[in-house]
Write a protein that binds this DNA or RNA. Structure first.
Lengths: 207, 207
DNA sequence: AGAAAAGCGTACTGGTTGGTACACTTTTTT
DNA sequence: AAAAAAGTGTACCAACCAGTACGCTTTTCT
C-alpha cells in the first residue's frame, strides 16, 4: 500500500519532471540549467537533488516518460476489416501524423542530438519507438500473408519497408528544416506509401 | 593574385577548423570549449578570435566544410550502362555505404542536435545532402523513363522513394544505437531497395 | 628599413553552472 | 507528542567558459 508521504513524494517528482520537460523541449539539454528548473518549479534547488542525483538523471527520467507516451497507440490502429488497402492506409496515416507532430519531432532531435552523452537512451527510444511500430506492422502483415491477401514473404522485412517509407520522406524534411508539412502532403504521402508497398506485396498483380 | 600573407592566413584558418572539427565531432558543440581548441591548436586564444568572431561562427565554418565534402560524389556513381538494375544497385550501394559511414553519422547527429541553435545549418545540410542525392537519382530515373526502361511517372517522387528506403532502414538503426551494420547487411539492404523500387517502377511486370 | 599584419602568451573579467551546506517550516507517521 | 521525512530559501563553492586586453615576437609587404 502507498503511504500518504510516498504519494506526495511521487507527485512532487512528477511535477519536477513536467516542469523540466518544458524547458528541455524549449531549450535543449545543455541550455537548461537546474536553477532554471527550480525557479520554474517554484521550489528550491535542494528539492531537485533529493529526487534526482544529477541533471543527467533528471533528463533520463524525462525521456523515459515521453517515450512511454508514444507506445501502444499504433497497434490499436491496425485492425483487420477485410480490406487490406484500407486498413494499411488508415494505420499509415496515423503513424505519419504522429511522427510528424511537433512533440514527436522535438523528441527525435533531442534523443539523436544528446545520443552521444546518453547512449542507452538512444537504444531504448529505438526499441520502443520505430522498432515497436515495425513489429506491429509485421504482425498485421504476417496475418494477411497467411490468409493469402498478401504475397508471402518476410513479414519483418515488409514492415521495415513501410517504416522506412514513412520515416524517410516528409519526416526527414521536417527534421531539418522546420517546414511543417500540410495535411494534404501528409495524406498524399500516406497513399504513396501504401501504393508502393502493395506494388511489392499485393497477392496478385493489380490490373 | 594571392599574397604570401593571405596564403598563410588561410592555412592557419584551415588548421583551426581542422582542429576544432576533431573536438566538435568527439565531444559535441556544447562540450567543446574555445580554450580547448586553442590548446589543441598549439596557438593562442587571441588568434582564434582574429579568425572567427565567435564560437558559433567557427562551428558554422566547420559544418559548411564537412557538407561540401559530401557533395558531388553521388552524381558520379550514377551513369547509365544500359542495365538499369545494375546501375541502380551500384549507386544505391555507394549511397548506403556513405550515409552509414561514421563521419556521416556523426555529422547527422551534430546537425540535428544543434539544429535549434543553428536553424540555417539544418536547411543547408538538407539541401546539399539528402535533397541533392534525390535530385541526382531523379535525373537518372527521368532519363530511363524517357527511354522506356522504366514505367513513366513522377521521377522526383520515384527518387524520393529510393532515398526514403535508403535512409529509413539501417540508417535509422545506426543513428540511435551505435550498432555498426555489417557489410552483408548493407549489401542485402541495397538489393532490397532496388527490388522494391523496380517492383514499383519496372517498365513491364516481372515474371 | 620601416610599417603593418599576424600570431603568441598570459592574465583577466563577468557570468553561469552543477552541486553543496545549513538552518528553517510543514506534513506525516508512529 | 515526538521523531522522521519532505520541502523551502538562501547563501555559497569551485570550476568553467566565451570573450577581452595588452605587450611581445615573427613574418611579410612596400
Amino acid at each position: 500500500m502507498m503511504t500518504r508521504r510516498e504519494e506526495q513524494r511521487l507527485e512532487r517528482r512528477a511535477a519536477i519532471i513536467e516542469v523540466a520537460a518544458q524547458l528541455f523541449v524549449e531549450k535543449g539539454y545543455g541550455a537548461t540549467s537546474m536553477s532554471a528548473v527550480a525557479d520554474a518549479l517554484g521550489g528550491s534547488k535542494a528539492t531537485l537533488w533529493k529526487h534526482f542525483a544529477s541533471k543527467e538523471e533528471l533528463f533520463a527520467a524525462f525521456i523515459e516518460g515521453r517515450i512511454s507516451l508514444f507506445r501502444e497507440e499504433v497497434s490499436q490502429t491496425l485492425a483487420s476489416t477485410g480490406n487490406v488497402r484500407a486498413d494499411l492506409s488508415k494505420a499509415v496515416l496515423h503513424l505519419l501524423r504522429r511522427i510528424l507532430s511537433e512533440p514527436s519531432l522535438v523528441l527525435y532531435r533531442l534523443v539523436i542530438g544528446e545520443g552521444g552523452r546518453f547512449p542507452e537512451i538512444g537504444r531504448i527510444f529505438y526499441e520502443r519507438g520505430p522498432k515497436a511500430n515495425q513489429d506491429a506492422f509485421a504482425m498485421f502483415i504476417q496475418a494477411r500473408m497467411s490468409e493469402g491477401e498478401l504475397r508471402k514473404g518476410d513479414a519483418q522485412e515488409a514492415a521495415g519497408m513501410v517504416i522506412a517509407l514513412c520515416s524517410g520522406g516528409l519526416h526527414q524534411r521536417a527534421l531539418w528544416q522546420d517546414s511543417k508539412p500540410t495535411k494534404k502532403e501528409i495524406e498524399a504521402e500516406a497513399e504513396a506509401v501504401v501504393d508502393h508497398f502493395l506494388r511489392s506485396y499485393a497477392a496478385k498483380a493489380p490490373k
